[in-house]
Design a protein around this nucleic acid. Structure first.
Lengths: 251, 251
DNA sequence: ATAAGCGTTCTGCCTTAGAGAACAGAACGT
DNA sequence: ACGTTCTGTTCTCTAAGGCAGAACGCTTAT
């Protein structure tokens, strides 16, 4: 939703921050060209951000500081869901030896809260804070499957069904069929849809109200996950982890 | 350093964000009282932040979203030092079974980039992004010891020498004596200074230029770290980890 | 030396942020 | 059902201040 009465000055500051995220470090002149702002305006914004710790100057160039990490870390730490789930996800990674992930939905997209690597884990370039379309991962699908249908429609309308690989779900009907399966099974599977050769299994974490809080998954190369595992031992283990989190949250 | 020509509108937005960090979720009216701003101003700022994903509205209340985690994660991931050091710190935690940490200096304070927990690790409430005064931890001391003396003076002037426990260094002279020791030994020790019963050992990671990039540490309860360990096997292991990082960074 | 680049400062016009009032809706106790 | 009192949101108008553009000091290249 767009703001009815946006604070334009703030939007300029945010545009500047977004630019610094993309590339950088930047000089004042460079940024002023990039953003179509006067040099003085850019300078004023940068020094303001700097005095509050959001931006640093080194060798005459400006870049973002670690204040964003501090704020992000603080926000994550204040989430009960994260605090309860974190040890379970780590345990899951340690026991399976693979990559375990924790995802929540925010504004219709998935946000990774953390990942934990087991001894043999593949090294995807996911990281805490990374956003992903919900329909492209097992984690996302298991969340979509537990949202009201109307909300799913909203999310599709807003974010589309952009597809990463030929195997991905590409149409609305296809997605709803998949979500039906997920609901029936209780977990979601991604067999090479996001990344060729990568198998992924996700289970939902639900509050006592039935609302979905997030999802837990394990990702592993297909070579190490047999078809039997994929429908036997693995879902059992992931569902059990999700269940422990549910119990700990709902006391 | 304060901005010469601060963008006051941006400062109001930042004040609002800082307030949302502290507590929340907040309503518009509540925030307008807290920050001495009109309701319309608060509302305009909040909706502007919301439309850019920084703030979320749920049940009529506003709170910060995970965009900060995304930005922070992105910034951290783009730091070569972090990318190289991260696997070493994890290995250190796994091998020792204790808590391993990674810290960098920014604007005169220490910022934890990550922590990794071994099987027996104590659970301190540090987290990625957390800030700490440099003189209060082994990590910080090992960084101070590798900065130019003039810079150390600056940092003390700016941040003081506030002390957490009676054992901490409390005076300028005492600190410089400690830093001399650290330089001589090559690593820093914190024996219950920050937290009673907690022993901590830190080693610096330096660029080929000699500039200190950050520090690696292991924290463990005193009951599990004998005096011999503290000056024998443990520093050897931590220094080795720091050394590997140095080699990987300097190719 | 000269020039061309940078970041920073300055000034004054004119955009615009925001106080305050008005409004719509929800949540109360009566 | 009713008025009351919260809330978040919209509106208007004017004083405040953002910022374009010019000028300045500095470093680096020619």
């Amino acid at each position: 939703m767009d703001a009815k009465h946006p604070v334009q000055t703030t939007e300029k500051t945010l545009a500047l921050i977004e630019q610094l995220i993309e590339g950088g470090p930047y000089g004042v002149t460079e940024l002023s060209h990039e953003l179509d702002m006067g040099k003085s305006a850019v300078h004023n914004h940068l020094t303001t951000l700097q005095s509050h710790g959001y931006v640093l100057k080194a060798d005459g160039e400006y870049r973002l500081g670690l204040k964003f990490l501090e704020i992000g870390g603080h926000i994550r730490k204040s989430m009960e869901f994260y605090e309860v789930a974190e040890p379970e996800v780590k345990a899951l990674a340690a026991e399976t030896g693979e990559l375990a992930n924790l995802l929540v939905e925010e504004q219709g997209v998935g946000v990774y809260l953390m990942r934990a690597k087991g001894d043999d884990a593949v090294d995807l370039d996911t990281y805490a804070g990374l956003r992903t379309n919900l329909h492209t991962t097992a984690l996302g699908k298991v969340i979509l499957a537990n949202l009201p249908e109307s909300r799913v429609e909203e999310i599709i309308d807003q974010h589309g069904l952009e597809t990463k690989t030929p195997k991905s779900v590409g149409t609305r009907d296809e997605l709803f069929d998949v979500l039906d399966d997920v609901r029936e099974r209780g977990y979601a599977i991604d067999d090479g849809e996001r990344l060729e050769g990568l198998r992924c299994l996700a289970a939902p974490v639900k509050a006592s109200s039935g609302a979905v809080l997030g999802a837990i998954s394990v990702s592993a190369p297909a070579s190490r996950v047999s078809d039997e595992d994929l429908h036997g031992a693995l879902p059992e283990r992931v569902l059990s982890a999700a269940n422990v989190v549910e119990l700990n949250i709902n006391y």
